[in-house]
């Protein structure tokens, strides 16, 4: 037995209706999600609800406290880096971008600058924003979304790999070096 909450246009009692539903008599409208306001279909047996306060607020409080405690601990023991005063005459070697941009810097090492520095990031950001409009598969079940999941996983793995390479394996002149992991006589690993 499904109960429709909200103004779904009166098409809610179809058994098994999930997500959005098309409204009969409005066939002219191509985008059903434009014609139909957000429709929440709640199945009584499965979708039990609880009051937000305290059930959810309590969890939020716990999560916030936990991360505050964790960050306070880290901040007590690990100091944020502060090197010598900026000096434009001395270029550190290697000069690295912050870690979350090291993927980009890595690409710059491997591809022509116009591609790595401009075309590629633009493609990723625009592609990301357009994802829901490109992926028209209505199902949310993982077994129906193999392509999407594989593509995203490849992307995430590449992104993480590039950051790890940038942080740990790029040494002088941004060339590949093992020293940071394995150490080097007279040189302290890591920054």
């Amino acid at each position: 037995m499904a109960t429709v909450v909200g103004n779904g246009g009166g098409s809610g009692d179809r058994p098994g209706a999930r997500g959005r539903a098309t409204v009969p008599g409005r066939q002219g409208v191509t985008g059903p999600e434009l014609a139909t306001p957000p429709l929440v279909v709640r199945r009584r047996e499965e979708e039990e609800t609880v009051v937000t306060f305290p059930a959810l607020v309590y969890r939020e409080f716990l999560a916030a406290s936990a991360i505050t405690a964790f960050l306070m601990l880290v901040s007590t023991w690990v100091n944020a880096p502060l090197l010598q005063r900026a000096n434009t005459a001395i270029t550190p070697n290697p000069a690295k971008a912050p870690w979350y941009f090291l993927g980009l810097q890595e690409l710059l090492e491997r591809f022509p600058p116009v591609m790595a520095g401009v075309a590629f990031p633009t493609f990723v950001i625009v592609g990301m924003m357009l994802t829901p409009y490109i992926d028209k598969n209505p199902s949310r079940r993982p077994q129906d979304r193999k392509v999407a999941i594989v593509l995203m996983t490849i992307y995430i793995m590449l992104a993480v790999a590039f950051v790890v390479i940038g942080v740990f394996f790029r040494g002088t002149a941004f060339t590949w070096q093992w020293d940071r992991l394995l150490g080097h006589p007279g040189v302290h690993p890591g920054t």
Partner: peptide, 16 residues
């Protein structure tokens, strides 16, 4: 913070 780390990271970043 205007230290070596800061200035050179931004130099590299904005070079892109």
């Amino acid at each position: 913070p205007w230290d070596q780390l800061a200035v050179w990271a931004i130099t590299v970043g904005t070079n892109m």
